[in-house]
């Protein structure tokens, strides 16, 4: 038994199954982060001060607690990884598997770089005793960035799969493999997209 339209697009919709599937998944992710952002809005509107009191000290601005330069660095890293991701797909579309390896490797490395910077940031907070239980600003900061971080980890795992074991498909079914990289890319860009909103709302406002 063969499931139709796994590789070739269906004529009347113009897309294949995997692409519809991943976009549906991303739509649900939009609502997942949407729920958390709504919670952020709700808590923030209800709070008399934001970020408010942490460890007996009143803060007026998020940037007084959070490390904006590190977060800016992370923004650039993540945007860069999006570019390398889309380049890895473009390389496959141009039948350049060697370049694909290079760009995919760069994407994975940038993903790890993001996590390392994030770990420094978290460590700095923990060392000051800024824990999620301290106040709601920190709580929403840790939950939102933490969930985003989990998505980055998930993306790295997927990318590593396509970098090594999954790449065997390039020899047997190059077209399907190119599609798969595009799909993985859509997810990775979405993770980037979430960060693009996270960065100003949590760090700068």
């Amino acid at each position: 038994m063969q499931i139709p339209f796994t590789v070739a697009p269906r004529p009347d919709t113009g897309v294949n199954n995997a692409k519809i599937g991943v976009w549906l998944f991303l739509a649900s992710e939009v609502m997942l982060f949407g729920g958390l952002f709504s919670a952020y809005i709700f808590l923030r509107i209800g709070a008399p001060e934001w970020p408010g009191e942490i460890g007996g000290h009143m803060y007026e601005r998020a940037s007084d607690i959070l490390n904006v330069p590190l977060a800016t660095l992370n923004t650039i890293i993540l945007i860069g990884s999006s570019v390398t991701m889309v380049m890895s797909w473009a390389s496959l579309a141009m039948k350049r598997f060697d370049r694909y390896r290079l760009y995919m490797g760069a994407t994975i490395a940038l993903g790890f770089a993001f996590l390392i910077v994030k770990a420094f940031e978290y460590g700095e907070k923990f060392s000051h005793g800024y824990l999620p239980a301290e106040n709601n600003f920190l709580a929403i900061y840790f939950v939102l960035t933490g969930l985003h971080g989990l998505h980055v980890i998930g993306g790295i795992i997927v990318n590593m799969y396509f970098m090594w074991p999954g790449a065997r498909m390039w020899k047997t079914d190059p077209k399907r493999f190119t599609n798969r990289i595009e799909i993985a890319g859509l997810y990775w860009h979405f993770v980037d997209l979430v960060w693009i909103f996270l960065f100003p709302t949590i760090y700068l406002l």
Partner: peptide
């Protein structure tokens, strides 16, 4: 990056 500019109507 996500090619929405040239993507199908369904998506």
């Amino acid at each position: 990056f996500m090619h929405l500019v040239s993507e199908e109507q369904v998506i």
